[in-house]
């Protein structure tokens, strides 16, 4: 059983992520191809919206991969190549949204919620008075005295 499990795990590791990029799309220059590949992993396919254009088999994703490679081969910087697509499809195509006025809530909202909650919790905890320890009963006092006495006698 253990052997089957470990073999399955090893095979799962080998699988990795399958890109939809076809050989005829790739650039000859491995450096440029690597740049295009890493950019396309962060660009969203507008047809199947939760896949990158690198993963998607949609015809439009293929077109956008080719356009991206054309821009890079023509000497565009990474930012320029991405801006070319953003100008057409909006920053929706960026899987990592840029930090802008309208994305501030997206980026810093969770931090704001954490700070707000933390402040609330801090005020609540500080304002709480520590619980008073209950006084000992008469019989407990007697027991305690006896224990102490026995300890001293030893």
């Amino acid at each position: 059983m253990r052997r089957i499990l470990s073999t399955a795990a090893a095979l799962a590791l080998l699988a990795g992520s399958a890109a939809a990029v076809e050989p005829d799309e790739q650039l000859r220059d491995p450096k440029l191809e690597a740049r295009a590949h890493s950019l396309s992993r962060d660009l969203r396919c507008v047809v199947c919206q939760n896949q990158s254009i690198d993963d998607s088999d949609a015809a439009l994703a293929r077109d956008l991969r080719i356009i991206l490679r054309e821009r890079i081969a023509a000497g565009d910087t990474d930012d320029q190549a991405v801006a070319f697509l953003v100008a057409r499809y909006g920053s929706f195509v960026q899987l990592k949204p840029p930090i802008r006025g309208d994305t501030l809530a997206l980026w810093f909202g969770p931090l704001a919620v954490l700070l707000l909650g933390g402040a609330g919790a801090a005020v609540y905890i500080r304002g709480r008075s520590p619980a008073k320890a209950a006084a000992l009963t008469v019989s407990e006092e007697a027991e305690l005295a006896e224990l102490l006495e026995r300890d001293e006698a030893r």
Binding site: V47, A59, L60, D63, L64, I67, R88, G90
Partner: peptide
């Protein structure tokens, strides 16, 4: 499809 892509056509 390039003219469509220039217009932001998604389908």
């Amino acid at each position: 499809g390039r003219t469509g892509i220039d217009m932001g056509v998604s389908g």
